[in-house]
């Protein structure tokens, strides 16, 4: 019995060492595939720079002050994508980018670091559906919802929508929330055909409620 223990001890130690770290025996690559150089469909090309290989994080890159890039929201924020909605890759101005509707014709996105104050953003959204600007008193009367634990102003407007980077929608609803604290502004904007947006306002509230800073 004791002898068995002495045999097993070094074997177990070796196995543990192998499992914990260090390099193991080289592995021979056996799967080799011939490629057709004339097949241009999704043919890989050599990147000219790392910036080209990692485009999402370098969008805007060096042009932005301080060398910052469009931030990957998943590293700092938590959120839950409502049932039936899908998430698509973030873009420079859309830190969280969601779609809904049978043809993904509705979109909802969160943007951090928007320019302008609350009034500027409310009236920019109103202008996108062809409405007149509101006064500061009228904006103060708008409803609010909780975003990151603070009251965010809710804007819900209907009309023909023309927004940056989106297809024009003739009968649209723009439903969004703007949180402006100090110099920082966060917006969550949902836009799409009016009836579809109306159906999804509950899910918009769910999404806003789910947004939190990581670890909180």
């Amino acid at each position: 019995m004791v002898r068995v223990f002495f045999y097993l001890l070094p074997a177990t130690a070796a196995l543990l060492l192998a499992a914990c770290g260090g390099s193991s025996e080289p592995i021979e690559i056996t799967d080799v595939r011939e490629l057709d150089p004339e097949n241009t469909f999704e043919q890989p090309v050599i990147a000219e720079s790392d910036k080209q290989r990692f485009p999402r994080l370098t969008a805007g890159g060096e042009d932005m002050a301080g060398g910052g890039e469009s931030s990957d929201a998943s590293t700092t924020l938590d959120w839950v994508v409502p049932d039936g909605w899908t998430e698509v890759p973030a873009t420079r101005f859309r830190d969280i980018n969601l779609r809904f509707g049978e043809q993904s014709e509705g979109e909802c996105y969160m943007t951090r670091g928007m320019q302008g104050d609350l009034a500027g953003n409310v009236n920019r959204w109103r202008k996108q559906v062809g409405l007149e600007a509101l006064t500061a008193e009228e904006i103060a009367e708008l409803p609010t919802l909780s975003l990151f634990g603070r009251p965010a102003t809710v804007v819900s407007v209907d009309g023909p929508y023309t927004g940056m980077g989106s297809k024009p929608i003739s009968d649209a609803r723009l439903h969004g929330a703007i949180l402006s604290v100090g110099g920082a502004t966060v917006t969550v904007k949902m836009v799409g055909p009016k009836s579809l947006v109306a159906e999804n306002e509950g899910k918009f509230d769910e999404f806003c409620a789910s947004l939190s800073l990581k670890g909180q």
Partner: peptide, 24 residues
């Protein structure tokens, strides 16, 4: 591209932080 030498998923997933695996 004329040829692809492929290292499959099963051989990659075990390479955790601190480990190094050589392929030849």
């Amino acid at each position: 591209p004329t040829k692809a030498h492929v290292i499959p998923w099963e051989q990659l997933v075990g390479i955790k932080d601190g480990r190094e695996q050589e392929f030849t």
